[in-house]
Amino acid sequence: MSDLFHQQSPIVQIKLTEPKANQPLIREIPFQGFLNLRGRPNNPDFMTAVKKVLGCSLPIEANTVVVSGDYKIYWLGPDEWLVITPTEQQRKVQSELISALGVIFSSVVDNSSGVTIINITGDNAANLIARDCPLDLHSTVFKAGQCAQTRLAKSGAMIAPLLDGSGFELIIRRSFADYLLLWMQDALIEFEA
């Protein structure tokens, strides 16, 4: 059904300018697929079934990310993961997971229209986020391969250092995207000169 409609970025009305002086670069990576996956990691059947579809084991260590081909899998909780797929692949992956899991105690929910990704890269990427985020973002404690759900400007966000070390990936709620981007634009002023 939904492909009859044209998807629209939640931040269409926000004009993202080129960075000035020491400002970081803010860009949306729109329209990715987001699947919420739940199950018991101590059930080997669950783990193998998921591995068969995604091509890798689910991250068991808290707050870590694994990349498997086109998919990225984030730890959300001790029995909960976020699977990010390329645009328009979420339904395929969802049905593959559902049929592989069969009767195994689990759930796979498509949350693609609920969230979006914002990348913040370049100078002061961490400083911009730190304007209102309690997480320690320093590269010695928060490294590539880790992720953390936290509070960003009174809203919620999943934050992960980008694998190439250029900055951070933020997974935020679509309904807060507009607000958060306006907040970021305001916070950017500090790095204008």
Binding site: A62, N63, G77, P78, P134, L135, A148, Q149, T150, R151
Partner: peptide, 10 residues
């Protein structure tokens, strides 16, 4: 117990 030390506001 899972995420380690975090700020109270979380």
């Amino acid at each position: 117990p899972w995420c380690g030390e975090r700020d109270e506001s979380e």
